[in-house]
């Protein structure tokens, strides 16, 4: 009887030991899902060596903090061909609007909101042509033109600050550099045209016949 008890105890202990040691090193199934894995493994995130600096070096970028998120965007003024506007617009707009001089910017057609909602001076400041203007008449720096867009396009603005709308520049790593609204959208005609796709696969056509 004693020996039976002994064997029984021994097996029991062995079983426990096996249960405790098996699967312990099986890192593969440590997490139930990749979402759990991301959550767990990013708790002690201390940053990485990979950086965007080599890629964005030399670009004219500046830092903005929007929606409590800080990132870099490209400057705008240095990319406008004839900035400052006051080089031509020496007088306020009203004084320059005469019949007998050649009209400037005649080729710009507004294809944005309808004429009831907006015209040139909805966004441009007719008193200070170097700046933009908010709906309530405050000056907006041309470099920060996103402030103008965000007045109406709040949802896009919020997505842009988070990174769901728009595009990163060059690198996924930090420091984050993102394009600003006017890098993709022409503010006078912000929609995208239809176009032909970049390629057509003739082999696929043959294969599927």
């Amino acid at each position: 009887m004693k020996i039976h008890r002994y064997i029984y105890n021994l097996t029991y202990c062995l079983l426990i030991v096996i249960l405790m040691t098996s699967c312990k090193h099986d890192k593969e199934h440590e997490y139930h899902s990749v979402t759990d894995k991301i959550e767990a493994e990013s708790k002690n995130y201390k940053g990485i060596k990979t950086s965007s600096e080599t890629f964005i070096d030399g670009m004219n970028l500046f830092e903005v903090t929007e929606n409590e998120i800080t990132f870099l965007i490209p400057t705008r003024k240095d990319k406008i061909k004839s900035y400052k506007c006051t080089e031509c617009h020496t007088q306020p707009l009203a004084k320059m609007q005469t019949n007998d001089i050649k009209k400037a910017h005649w080729n710009i057609k507004i294809n944005h909101a309808d004429a009831n909602t907006m015209n040139c001076v909805t966004c441009h400041n007719s008193d200070n042509m170097n700046d933009l203007k908010s709906i309530t008449g405050h000056s907006i720096d041309l470099n920060k033109s996103y402030k103008l867009c965000s007045q109406c396009h709040q949802k896009q603005y919020k997505d842009w600050t988070g990174g769901a709308h728009g595009k990163r520049i060059e690198s996924w790593a930090n420091p984050r550099a993102s394009m600003t609204c006017v890098n993709c959208h022409n503010p006078h005609s912000p929609g995208f045209d239809t176009k032909w796709p970049a390629r057509f696969n003739t082999q696929k056509v043959k294969e599927r016949k």
């Binding site: 991301i38 995130y45 940053g47 990485i48 988070g162 990174g163 990163r168 996924w172 993102s178």
Partner: peptide
């Protein structure tokens, strides 16, 4: 990077 809590 999914492990960077501040990534886009």
């Amino acid at each position: 990077n999914l492990l960077d809590p501040n990534s886009t």
